[in-house]
Design a protein around this nucleic acid. Structure first.
Lengths: 348, 348
DNA sequence: CTGAAAGCGCTTACAG
DNA sequence: CTGAAAGCGCTTACAG
């Protein structure tokens, strides 16, 4: 392996000069820089990250912690962040919690981040007290994506989950539905999201604004995924006097609802309307009406913000932000929502 | 930050002994080891990865290169590999090619892997000659997941794409279909998979075995994703005398087919049967019949194999493997396939 | 603008 | 079983 002194020798300069020239520091004459670059090129030299980082005192690495990379939202966030970080010269150290307690301990309580990264992007992971203390003690810059716990000093980028849920619910109400059910995530979910709490709040707010008292029997907690949507919907149907519309806390739960309704012989949207939140990349395939959010935008802003903090040039987005940066959502109407059947149409 | 000499001082030993004790080397007395561990615990000491790696001559990192992390298959592979690597004490350096030529150049031709990783897991990425030369010159252990280019000395884990396609096609033929179309990926696709070439081969083989001559007008190339499936199916319908069944080279193309058929007012499976390959996690939601493969198994074997090579203890799976490790696939029949309509049933 | 020297925080022969 | 010393391959004041 060629080392920096091989380059120095070939270029006829010191290793210090090679180091400066290769990093583009301004204190190198054009002629010298040319010679160094030519020598490095000729020898196919690349700097040793470990040596460079040890000497330089930076790790050149950013940790990205997500609940599950296989979920659409986090996959897109990671893809976006990875591209931006690599362009900025940073490596991405991926930590996928995967709902495993041991992994969570390893990442959020022991030393897997210590001395290993310059900054952290933490997505949708509410923290327990000791975890919060540990992350704070790390004294690193960080950014929170989506809801979760607020870490002092860490900016946050997210959507307004309450508003998104209001939008979804209101869409159903505007179509004329009166019996609108809600299926959402369980607080004890292994992934421990909290977005669904806000979404339930928005659901109830929208009902009350329309003069409808939330009916607890239409509000079901389950897992925040396809299977949870199936089970919640089955439960809903078991209870008798089924709703004419279902607002699912996320698209994957909505997909579960579609599955359960189909299996029960009910037609969507003829018998029951369904709406979700996300605009999952397969929502179109299922014709699912939803409230769209953009993981790309959230990831991009998070990456920009963190790199700004790391390089000392704060990015615009969160510059003067006191609270979180709240990104917009928008209603996407497809084929799973329609007005409820009137008694006449039902008789057909 | 506490350093190794802080621990050494507190424990009353040399830094060399601390280093040995912390790594569990056998050449340390039990008493000394206890004192060192206690001191490290008390000081909350963690080793500096960069220093350790520089001195030790290993990076402790494995590169995982995938075409697109947001695709179901690769997301699951990364999740599986990440877990296994972290348990084994390795960091995961993620490279998502994303169909971007510049990214590809950065990862596969310049120095983003050089001196930075101890090994490489490369998924479903056919290599061009210079890329292959570059990777070989790196002289690192590696494992290939899924098809792509064969790198000399790198084991490969995959499914038999030809056989999987034969299974899918034969399922349609067994149901009585005679006009079986195939929609698959374009060789110029930005992701540059090659699996679809083998799958087309299997499709043709199955037809010929059944005494049916492959009809070029029923064999359409498009992109290897939902949108490609939509466009290919639209093209198929435009051509007149449509097929009674469609075999899509992957589930996401099959989902596109479902979408296009629905938009064209055709019913599945009444008018047209559809089958894919993958068993995508949402295949069940769509009732999609498919030939299942397991990215979890492929990722796990890849990770085990690579870690075996890195630690000098070869894992069983590929120990004596001359050719690739071929994992099984299995037919999963759901609701998108059925016998073709007979003239009478069509008249109903 | 450039170089000599110290230092980053570990690990590894080598010696005992 | 343990320690002193060299070395991993860079970067960074410091001096000129």
């Amino acid at each position: 392996m060629t080392r920096i002194d091989d380059v120095a020798r070939l270029a006829g300069v010191s290793t210090a000069t090679v180091s400066r020239a290769l990093r583009g520091l301004p204190t190198v004459s054009a002629a010298t820089r040319h010679r160094v670059l030519a020598a490095a090129e000729q020898l196919q030299y690349t700097v040793s990250p470990n040596a460079s980082r040890l000497a330089g005192g930076r790790t050149g690495t950013v940790a990205v912690v997500v609940p599950r990379i296989t979920r659409w939202f986090f996959g897109v966030v990671v893809e976006t962040v990875e591209d931006f970080l690599h362009r900025g010269g940073y490596d991405l150290l991926l930590h996928n919690l995967g709902g495993r307690e041991r992994t969570r301990q390893r990442v959020l309580r022991t030393a897997d981040l210590h001395k290993r990264v310059d900054g952290i992007i933490l997505a949708a992971t509410p923290l327990r007290a000791p975890e919060l203390a540990f992350l704070s003690a790390l004294d690193l810059p960080g950014v929170i994506v989506s809801s979760g716990t607020n870490v002092p000093g860490w900016p946050c980028v997210r959507i307004d989950d309450v508003a998104a849920a209001r939008t979804a619910t209101r869409h159903l109400l505007d179509l004329g539905h009166q019996r609108v059910a809600h299926i959402s995530g369980d607080p004890d979910d292994e992934l421990a999201f909290t977005a669904h709490l806000d979404r339930r709040r928005g659901y109830r707010e929208a009902l009350r604004s329309a003069g409808i008292r939330p009916d607890p029997s239409l509000d079901i907690e389950s897992r925040f995924d396809v299977d949870g949507g199936i089970r919640a919907t089955e439960e809903l149907l078991r209870r008798g006097d089924p709703p004419t519309a279902i607002f699912a806390a996320c698209d994957e739960m909505a997909m579960g609802a579609l599955t359960a309704l189909r299996d029960a012989g009910l037609r969507v949207p003829d018998d029951v309307s369904v709406i979700g939140i996300d605009n999952h990349y397969l929502a179109g395939v299922l014709g699912l009406t939803t409230v769209a959010q953009s993981p790309t935008d959230q990831g991009l802003i998070a990456a920009k913000t963190l790199l700004g903090a790391l390089t000392g040039r704060p990015a615009d987005p969160l510059r003067a932000a006191d609270g979180p940066v709240v990104l917009p959502t928008r209603l996407v109407v497809r084929e799973t929502t329609a007005p409820p059947r009137t008694p006449e149409s039902a008789a057909r």
